[in-house]
């Protein structure tokens, strides 16, 4: 039997909003320690990995490892019925389940809703994500990053990210013209979510498709800050922490000049 009870249903709502426009169907791997979701967009350009450890749950029981093939649109419809402060319980049999139950309990306990969603067969390959030493880590406000990606999308379909010791520059150009946004490394980190910290081993200069970055920033409500990890020749990692009990990581390869 797999059963997981989340005190804050709003978190699951935000997680679905973070992945459903990028990955239609995803494999939710549940084991004794955590729920892990990994999926790619339909064109296999980007990858998202979500991890939510058992400690995030009020109650977590997973007698045998079970993989739930979830259609994220169906799951999102159910979660649209949930309030942020509802308790959400996920339940599934652990012998090749063909469905998953979701129970929503209102905070005052007067309303209980239960849904059964059919699981989908997904035969995507699970990819191994190698541990990588990155040349640069940029930690910044998630809202700021979302705003930069949105604003620069008006100038071009790609953003060039250049990191130096002092700052990180986002540039885009197209027929509208050229736009540069430069964030200076904050000297003092007083308010974490408003500062920009650049941890640089060596300078990087990479170009990424804004269409995907704007899909990644759907996770902005999950965390006040976002961390970008960059290396020449390696996919960009855009990471949003889920409190202390997990993360959502998006991976996107840099564009290469023909």
């Amino acid at each position: 039997m797999f059963e997981a009870k989340l005190q804050q249903g709003g978190l699951l709502k935000k997680i679905l909003e973070s992945v459903k426009d990028l990955v239609v169907d995803g494999l939710w791997d549940c084991d004794g320690a955590a729920i892990t979701l990994q999926g790619m967009d339909s064109s296999h350009v980007a990858l998202v990995e979500m991890l939510l450890r058992a400690e995030a749950f009020e109650h977590y029981r997973c007698d045998r490892n079970v993989t739930l093939g979830m259609n994220h649109n169906h799951l999102s419809k159910i979660l649209k019925c949930a309030n942020n402060d509802d308790i959400v319980i996920l339940k599934a049999a652990d012998q090749n389940p063909d469905s998953c139950s979701l129970i929503l309990e209102s905070k005052n306990g007067e309303k209980t809703s239960d849904f059964v969603v059919s699981l989908v067969r997904i035969d995507t390959d699970q990819l191994g994500i190698p541990e990588t030493e990155y040349s640069a880590h940029v930690k910044m406000s998630s809202g700021e990053f979302q705003r930069i990606c949105r604003d620069l999308s008006q100038f071009g379909d790609a953003v060039q990210i250049t990191c130096s010791k002092q700052d990180v520059k986002f540039s885009s150009s197209g027929e509208t013209g050229k736009a540069n946004i430069t964030l200076t490394h904050s000297a003092t980190v007083d308010k974490e979510e408003e500062s920009v910290t650049v941890d640089l081993k060596e300078p990087v200069d990479l170009t990424f498709a804004l269409r995907f970055l704007n899909l990644f920033t759907k996770a902005t409500p999950i965390s006040d800050t976002v961390t970008l990890s960059l290396s020449q020749e390696a996919p960009l990692v855009v990471e949003y922490k889920i409190g202390d009990s997990g993360h959502i990581r998006y991976f996107l390869a840099p564009k290469i000049q023909e």
Partner: peptide, 14 residues
């Protein structure tokens, strides 16, 4: 026009 590689060029099947 710059090319967009697939993520599968970088991560192997587990």
């Amino acid at each position: 026009k710059p090319k967009q590689p697939s993520i599968m060029n970088f991560f192997t099947k587990a």
